[in-house]
Each structure stands twice: as C-alpha cells, then as structure tokens.
Amino acid sequence: MLDIITGAISLGLLWAVMTIGVFITYRILNIADLTVEGSIAMGAAIAAQGITMGLNPFLATALALAGGMAAGLITGLLHTQLKIPALLSGILTMIALWSVNLRIMGKANISLLRMNTVYTFLESFGMDKTYAIIVLGLLLVLALVSLLYWFFGTEIGSAIRVTGNNPHMARALGINTNTTLILGLIISNGLVAFSGALIAQSQSYADVQMGTGSIVIGLASVIIGEVLFGRQHFFGRLTALVLGAVTYRIIIALVLKLGMPANDLKLFTAITVAIALSLPVIKQYLNPHRFREVE
C-alpha cells in the first residue's frame, strides 16, 4: 500500500510540472490549448532519443524543454498571426506533432531500461528509484513554483496575466497581446514537454501515444488543486496545482487498487472533470434563489 502511495506521489510531482503548464494557458491566458497532448509526447520523444544517442540526460531534458517551447511558438503564431481560433490552432499543432514525434523517435516507442536518466545520479547514492524521483521532483517543482511566482509578478508577467483577463484593456494600456499570448504558449508548452521528458525517464520508456488524454489529466489536476487547496494568492495557487496533481495520482492509484479496470481510467477522469467543471451550474440549479454572478 505504501508503495502505491509513494509511486503515486512520485508520478504526481512529475505531472505537476505539466499541470502548471496547463494552468498557464487554461487559467492565465484563458484559452484551452490542446498542443499539450503533442508537446508532452514530444518532450518524452526528444529526451528518450537524446539519451539513446548518448547525450547527457540533463541535456536531453533541456532539449525537450526547448522542443516544447517551439511547439508553443507554432500554436501562438497560428493563432495570433493567421487568426486561427486558439482551440483549432492547438489541435493543428497537436496533430502535426504526432508525425514529428514519430520522426524524432524513428519508431512508436523507445525503451530507456538500464540507461542513464536524470534520476541515475540520485540512485547512485543508494536511493530507490521512486525516492530518487520524489527528491528530484520536489526540488524541481519547488524551483519552478518560485521561478514562476517571480516571473508572473514582473512587468512582462503581469502583462501576460492581464492579456488573459481583459485583452481590450491590455491593448489600451499599450500591451501587444499577440506577443504576450505567444509568450504564454511558449512557456506553457515548454513546461509540458519538460514534464514529458521527466515522465518518460521515470517510467523508462517513451511512447508516441503518451499524450493522448493528457489535457484532461492536466485539467483534472488543476481543478482538484483549486477545489481542495485553492488560495487567492498567486503563490498559493501555484502550490495548489502541485498538490492537485499529486492528489489526482493518489485517487487514480486508489481506484485502480479497488479494482477498477485500467482501461476505464480515461472515462473516469473525463467524468470527474466534467462534474468539477459543471459544479457552478449544479450549485446554481440546486439553489435557484441565489443569482449572484460568478466571475
């Protein structure tokens, strides 16, 4: 049982990086970006291929980050320069990335068994792999949350936040909303690919299919985080995402342990997200006398 929990925590920490990426587009930029389904697999593909070719795993992971940023840039350009709706721009990049990822890997999946990964150096201190993942995951997540807290407090970061909140006002205040949108998409997809690289190394394989449904997992984690650990303050909101991603993994581990077939997992996640997203409507329906507008 303890194994299941620690396993879920380790996986949750790696998915937390992806969750933060999804949060940036979904909550901050106010667009549903489906690029992530492609960029998470892209991150895995680049890292796995890099490591197989003998690159330092940290360098391979950094390349994965860069690859994801490029994917975000493409979606951003499709949306802002060619005026394709955000949702469709993301879908186009996602579909294109499927082929790109197959080209990167040369086949549908790559095994990383018995190869050096970013966790190897911790394991060499005699640490079990799961604990190595938890330690590195915690360090990375902590660094990331601090970095993003700082970044979104800066002038550029505030400009990105206001773009999602009120683009008319942003432009009236001299903010080029195309630039801020592209910047947000680059950061988001960079993080998602980074997360994909970390996940691939933790499970010792990369698969072109690993992105399928990831957006829903990301959304589920965002929503679980907000509902259970939500705070007003931005630092609190970022931490809540990490806790949400970990909680999601623990819930999944538990329902699987209770005997739910693994094939039903995506159905279960989709239903959870649908219910969570419709909570405001359900609440209002149950309480017809309260017509307060919810932001």
Partner: peptide, 15 residues
C-alpha cells in the same frame, strides 16, 4: 501599476 506603465517598455522588473 499596469496603467502606470502604458507606453513604457515592460521588462523583468517587479510589476
């Protein structure tokens, strides 16, 4: 603070 920076270049200074 966003309005105060209208027309200014926005950088990595605190907002």
């Amino acid at each position: 603070a966003l309005a105060y920076r209208r027309g200014e270049k926005r950088g990595l200074r605190w907002g």
